[in-house]
């Protein structure tokens, strides 16, 4: 019922276009993982691991099934073609990945931060995002006592 496919960045758009023709008309989920501190689970030997991995889950309705597509994205140029033309529902999901992991999507109509404020620095779901410090946003509180 649930399969996993590994697709290179070059074939990314054409692969989804083919699957969509085949009947995978529904985009269930689009997310990404930062594999800075761990190995990629279940990666076949012929796929070269990169720092980021974009994970897309698509469904077909005629024969209920789920296909998970994993794509390696290099850290030096974290850009992936956008799926908005094929699956308009990808718009918010790609914005979320851009916001929290800093992976860009070429051809996205509105690639801006969605959850964090527009002037936020950094991408919190990256593994090298500094923890251990709470950014104070409201400093101007005067003490009354």
């Amino acid at each position: 019922m649930s399969e996993v496919a590994f697709v290179s960045l070059e074939e990314y758009t054409s692969y989804f276009a083919e699957r969509r023709e085949e009947g995978y008309t529904f985009l269930a989920d689009l997310t990404a993982v930062d594999y800075l501190e761990a190995g990629h689970p279940g990666l076949p030997a012929e796929v070269r691991p990169e720092r980021f991995e974009v994970v897309v889950n698509i469904r077909r309705f005629d024969q209920p099934s789920l296909l998970r597509v994993r794509t390696q994205v290099p850290a030096e140029s974290p850009w992936v073609p956008s799926l908005v033309d094929l699956y308009p529902g990808a718009e918010a999901m790609e914005r979320e990945v851009y916001d929290l992991l800093g992976i860009g999507f070429e051809g996205h109509p509105d690639l801006t931060r969605i959850l964090l404020p527009e002037d936020w620095e950094g991408h919190p779901l990256r593994k090298d995002y500094g923890l251990g410090r709470v950014p104070v946003q409201f400093k101007e509180v005067r003490r009354h006592r």
């Binding site: 269930a28 989920d29 997310t31 993982v33 930062d34 501190e37 761990a38 190995g39 689970p41 994970v55 889950n57 779901l125």
Partner: peptide
């Protein structure tokens, strides 16, 4: 949906909620 990646430790390496 819940996408979960484990690296063998006692905490999820990545947890994403759809």
């Amino acid at each position: 949906g819940c996408y979960m990646v484990s690296d063998g430790s006692a905490k999820p390496y990545r947890m994403h909620i759809r």
